[in-house]
Design a protein around this nucleic acid. Structure first.
Lengths: 71, 71
DNA sequence: CAAAATAGTGCACTATGTTGCCCTTTGCGT
DNA sequence: ACGCAAAGGGCAACATAGTGCACTATTTTG
């Protein structure tokens, strides 16, 4: 699973677990439904801000780690 | 710290800890130095693929978590 | 099964991200 | 201080992400 699909799946699963539709999420996040559809199906190459808007709306967080554990 | 700066800083710190220059990283990752400069300074709105290329090159990983712990 | 709701897609257009070129600034080593 | 390497920034051309609309497909509900 590449990073794009990982994110796509996280969003889709989380949205469903919150029992809201793509249209709901679109309104809440400020991302168009059209773009949201592409993102959830792992298509295209969304910008970071789109992803962050959606993550914030869904209460998703991401954590960055290096091979070792600095920082 | 917003998500953009969080990513910017992670990349910059990690690159320096590997003792490589922006030009080095640009060549390795396939992202132009020009874009890399913007990304490391937290400017603009990079695409996910740009970020993933850089993360892969630097050995950075990200993990997504929800408020609760499903999935 | 039929209807309604939700999800996915094609297309055209607009907005903006990506890059190369070139110059300025900063930091480092001698 | 000087010279060089690395980092940062302005700009224009090009590439592509974002969006609305209309439509199809799929899932859910009665």
């Amino acid at each position: 699973m590449d990073g794009l699909n990982k994110i796509a799946e996280s969003i889709s699963k989380r949205r469903k677990s919150l029992k809201i539709t793509q249209n709901d999420l679109a309104e809440i996040s400020g991302v168009s439904t059209r773009s949201l559809k592409d993102i959830e199906t792992g298509k295209g190459n969304p910008t970071l801000i789109q992803i962050l808007k959606i993550f914030n709306s869904l209460g998703l967080k991401f954590k960055i780690t290096a091979g070792n554990d600095d920082d």
